[in-house]
């Protein structure tokens, strides 16, 4: 009988017959209830697996944590202080309103500070709504989240995520927002539609894009990249690609490999 202890990426095996043995583990071997808990705790609420092993287990752990998050402590404390100040102002309205200085205190405590706090809170919230964590916090998106981890070199989402071709903390947003003048606004309005569908009208059985995926989103990054230009086929049809008459997805067909998601075929870091 041997005792297994887990320290980071190493497994210390204490075997009475063979003595103590230190063994480096691959990710698959490390998936145990204990390591699962460790992986789960390793996914900080505000960064999705940027430096952590890419395992299906890790993906599930991250998705579980993604469901509910807390904004940064400084913001929470600032809002708490704001609430306390407003409560104090409420209790001291009478004496404060009697003096000019008190009325200025009321103006700051009841108007200026709360407005500043809520604008700061909302602007942080808007930027946070671009995060992968936020997108995947709706359960309808869980499968799409898992598709970032599949073992498929043809699947665009997985390739971009696993090779860090897009920032991991804003993977969905980076690929699904338009790079036009009002691309951000459009993406946020679409996000509101998603929330409406999630809570009110219901999500359709098959989730589809609102419009065909525009080539400009791909070309925004690949346009002048060597990997793109070195391919003869890209050069041959570049004018059609820029005009949008041929879609990038007509050759690169798999955006999210849902077949492998359902088959639990995930890439394992070794």
């Amino acid at each position: 009988m041997s005792l297994h202890l887990y320290f980071g990426s190493h497994d210390v095996v204490v075997d009475p017959r063979r003595g103590l043995k230190l063994r480096k583990l691959c990710v698959r071997e490390r998936v145990t209830p204990r390591s699962r808990a460790r992986i789960a705790s390793a996914f900080a609420p505000h960064e999705i697996s940027a430096t952590k092993p890419l395992t299906s287990d890790g993906a599930e752990a991250s998705l579980r944590i993604l469901a509910a998050a807390v904004l940064p402590l400084s913001l929470v404390v600032a809002l708490g202080v704001g609430v306390v100040l407003v409560a104090m102002s409420l209790l001291g309205v009478r004496p404060l309103a009697a003096h000019a200085a008190g009325r200025i205190v009321l103006l700051v405590g009841l108007v200026a500070l709360p407005v500043l706090l809520s604008v700061g809170n909302l602007s942080y919230g808007v930027s946070e709504s671009s995060s992968t964590r936020f997108c995947l916090s709706c359960h309808e998106m869980e499968r799409f989240g898992r598709s970032l981890f599949v073992d498929d070199k043809q699947a665009l989402a997985a390739v971009h995520y696993q090779n860090r071709l897009v920032p991991r903390e804003s993977t969905c947003y980076t690929c699904h927002k338009d790079y036009a003048l009002f691309g951000d606004v459009k993406a946020k309005l679409n996000g509101l539609r998603h929330v409406w569908a999630h809570y009110v009208t219901g999500v359709p059985e098959q989730i589809k894009l609102y419009q065909p995926y525009p080539n400009s989103n791909c070309l925004h990054c690949h346009d002048d990249s060597r990997r793109f230009l070195d391919k003869e086929v890209h050069r041959a049809i570049s004018s059609q690609l820029y005009a949008g008459s041929v879609s990038c997805l007509s050759c690169h067909r798999i955006a999210h490999d849902m077949v492998k998601v359902d088959a639990h075929q995930f890439w394992q870091a070794r």
Binding site: S89, L110, S137
Partner: peptide, 22 residues
């Protein structure tokens, strides 16, 4: 006004503690 402002901040505080799309 103080009650309204306090409630508004409270809503934002609760939201910040449990940040979801809703």
């Amino acid at each position: 006004a103080a009650v309204c402002t306090g409630l508004g901040l409270l809503v934002q505080l609760v939201a910040a503690l449990h940040w979801t799309p809703f």
